[in-house]
Amino acid sequence: MFDTAVESTHVWLGLAVVSAGILGLALRVPTAPPPDATGLARTVDSVAASPHEATARHPLDARQVRIGAHRVGLRGPGGDAHASLAYGPVVPAVGGDGDRLRRVLRGVPPERAFGSEATFARALDRSRTTEPSWRPAPERLLVRRVTWGDTNATLVGA
């Protein structure tokens, strides 16, 4: 009595619209998993928690990286992934003092890269408080815990 005829044009049009919507959803599903930000955070935390100077390398499988004082993020073909750091704040080796901080990150003692401990501490504070931004991801990130007098820091960068 209230049946719709299968030959009805409206039924076929509705079926076509629903099928196109389902196909669109299926094509939007990422084909790869998001990068492993949790693994990166564990590497950073293991160095930051060390009572002594320490260094680690973490390979990245991402297109972009975002390093903040308390959080890291990775962006890849499978989407974005973020993880919080348990032992922060860390210092991204980027920004205005990034060249000198990158030298320290790569093994140069801070007293050779900076004129004084106070200058080193100011550079750490500036880099730590800079708003994090997405940057091209290197093949691996370096993490280094350094100490100069009363100034301790965990540097993260490439």
Rank of each mutant, 00 (worst) to 15 (best):
E53N: 13
E53G: 14
E53A: 14
A54Y: 15
A54N: 14
T55W: 05
T55V: 15
A56Y: 07
A56T: 10
R57I: 07
R57H: 15
R57K: 15
H58N: 12
P59W: 12
P59Q: 03
L60R: 02
D61R: 09
D61M: 01
D61C: 01
A62W: 06
A62L: 01
R63M: 10
R63E: 12
Q64W: 06
Q64P: 01
V65F: 00
R66I: 08
I67G: 06
I67H: 03
G68E: 05
G68V: 09
G68Q: 01
A69M: 09
A69I: 04
H70E: 11
H70C: 08
R71N: 02
V72C: 12
V72Q: 02
G73K: 09
R75T: 01
G76A: 01
G76H: 01
P77V: 01
P77H: 08
P77L: 12
G78R: 13
G78Y: 02
G79N: 08
G79R: 00
D80C: 05
D80L: 14
H82A: 11
H82Q: 12
H82W: 15
A83H: 13
S84E: 14
S84R: 15
S84A: 12
L85F: 10
L85R: 02
L85W: 12
A86N: 06
A86K: 12
Y87S: 08
G88E: 11
P89S: 13
P89V: 12
P89Y: 09
V91D: 08
A93D: 10
A93H: 05
A93K: 09
V94L: 07
G95T: 04
G96N: 06
G96H: 15
G96P: 14
G96D: 11
G96I: 08
D97P: 03
G98P: 00
R100F: 00
L101G: 12
R102S: 14
R103S: 15
V104W: 03
V104T: 05
L105F: 10
R106K: 06
V108D: 07
V108S: 09
P109D: 12
E111A: 07
E111Y: 12
E111L: 02
E111Q: 06
R112T: 04
A113V: 05
A113P: 07
F114P: 02
F114Q: 03
F114S: 08
F114K: 10
F114D: 05
G115V: 05
G115M: 01
S116K: 04
S116Q: 06
S116E: 08
E117S: 13
E117Y: 06
A118N: 07
T119I: 05
T119K: 11
